[in-house]
Design a protein around this nucleic acid. Structure first.
Length: 423
RNA sequence: GGUGAGAUGCCUGAGUGGCCGAAAGGAACGGUUUGCUAAACCGUCGUACGGGUUAAACUGUACCGAGGGUUCGAAUCCCUCUCUCACCGCCA
């Protein structure tokens, strides 16, 4: 959530930045300010009336102790009339506060100064690229054919057990997935990230804290009976570890990593985008999260991008790093870099990581704070990134490394996989 | 799932209607003492939203798991919910 005092002091900037994010409901800004004014007015009114009640009550107590019953009774009736006023004020205040939060929640985060303008993925800016796109082997086929040929993934079996988008990995396909998880986690922990295993279902407060709720409700699977959501990414449980916490500034930054499956409904996706491993309802991902001092977050964002880049490079895959334009960014993000790897057999780039700085947007929703030098609570900045999402990496390894003799396994994965080739 | 007990500040823990935003101890932080460490001593040690101020000081309101109720007045009494613990049942 944006902070109301900030909106108040920087209204023009807020409107300009929201426009860059291709946000249309600009009237909401004015609405938020009006609601906040109303909230303040009602708060004052309530507090003043309640103060009168409190002091009268104290006096009644004294009068009773002194045996001045008549005087006490008259003060009682005075309090009663004050309380009649109090109830409606209180109710209106509660409604106003609720609507304020609801309205404020509809405003996305403001894009950082260096976010390029644009509405579509075509307008993202390529900031770096690396690796060579290999010449296409003459007998090359897409990964879904390779998966069948080498008996690595059974898509039909997933259809039977659950539905489309829930593939079954088997044999060396399953082994390769496990090898990647292991390697990615080891890579992250070697750079100071603390490994976590977190719940795969979260409550509503957690969904709100990271910005998935209420807006992206349809993206998450919901377990009605227990009112829990299946996580769309481990960002949600990891970041919510810090919800309603006041941290010590000397403990910052917190660096966390976790492997979890991720569940996404992907309602409305269809066609060739969902072929094979390209877009799934359940997939595996290793995530990195940092909780940092506001002064350091952009420096740390760069550090995280470099961290993920090192991981992609070690897999020897052709990649590019994009700075997302305003219109392509996520709701809660202030600046996002996407990593894409090139799938030779499909001849297209596939997103395998998204690294973002949320500044105080999530922290304000989750009330994640630290005590600054003066001992005052201040919102932290939160960042996260995939390191990495597995299915598309798997697709690219299979497609790019295929030869007539089989599929070559990247050197860094071989110790985990137990072999250098799939034949 | 059943039965019983409980939920107070960073922690332990007192508080059963007004003097309680909350005793006491511990931890932590700052300082004094000390050759260093330890000990001792002094001080600080909630959050949110308002008012106020250049900023402070100061000040109002709320919060003792959450929500509601009784009362002039609630941490304290009542109701509902959530969670925790113990025992039983079931079970990886």
């Amino acid at each position: 959530m944006l902070q109301v005092p900030f909106i108040r002091q920087n209204k023009a900037l807020v409107l300009e930045r929201l426009t860059l994010k291709n946000f249309k409901e600009l009237d909401l800004v004015e609405e938020v300010l009006a609601l906040d004014d109303k909230r303040k007015k009602l708060t004052l009114e309530y507090d003043e009336t309640q103060a009168k009640v409190n002091s009268a009550s104290k006096e009644i107590g004294k009068l009773m102790a002194q045996g001045q019953k008549d005087e006490a009774e008259s003060r009682k009736s005075e309090v009663a009339s004050l309380k009649e006023k109090l109830h409606p004020i209180n109710e209106e205040l509660a409604v106003t506060e609720k609507v304020l939060i609801q309205t404020l929640s509809k405003l996305p985060n403001l894009p950082a100064a260096i976010v390029p303008p644009g509405k579509t993925p075509e307008e993202n800016i390529e900031v770096r690229k690396g690796g060579d796109i290999p010449a296409l082997y003459s007998g090359a086929v897409p990964h879904w054919d390779l998966a069948k040929k080498y008996d690595l993934i059974d898509f039909e079996l997933g259809n039977k057990i659950t539905g489309s988008g829930f593939p079954v990995y088997k044999n060396r396909g399953a082994r390769l997935q496990r090898a990647m998880i292991q390697y990615f986690l080891d890579y992250n922990t070697s750079k100071g990230y603390i490994e976590y295993q977190v719940p795969h279902l979260v409550n509503e407060a957690s969904g709100f804290g990271t910005g998935q709720l209420p807006d992206k409700e349809g993206q998450m699977y919901f377990v009605t009976e227990d009112e829990l959501y299946l996580i769309p990414t481990s960002e949600v449980p990891l970041t919510n570890i810090f919800r309603d916490e006041i941290l010590k500034d000397t403990d910052l930054p917190y660096k966390l990593t976790s492997y979890t499956p991720c569940f996404r409904r992907e309602a409305g996706s269809y066609g060739k985008d969902v072929r094979g491993l390209n877009r799934l309802h359940q997939f595996d991902k290793v995530e990195i999260v940092q909780i940092v001092h506001p002064d350091k977050s952009y420096e740390i964002l760069d550090e995280m991008v470099a961290h993920v880049e090192g991981l992609v490079q070690s897999l020897e895959l052709p990649y590019r790093i994009l700075r997302l334009c305003g219109g392509d960014m996520g709701f809660a993000s202030a600046l996002t870099y996407d990593f894409e790897v090139y799938s030779t057999a499909q001849q297209k780039w596939l997103e395998v990581s998204s690294v973002s700085n949320f500044e105080t947007y999530q922290a304000n929703r989750a009330k994640a704070r630290f005590k600054d030098g003066a001992g005052k609570p201040q919102l932290v900045h939160t960042l996260n990134g995939s390191s990495l999402a597995l299915p598309r990496i798997l697709a690219c390894i299979l497609e790019n490394n295929q030869t007539a003799e089989g599929i070559q396994i990247p050197a860094v994965l071989q110790p985990y996989f137990g072999s250098d080739k799939i034949v």
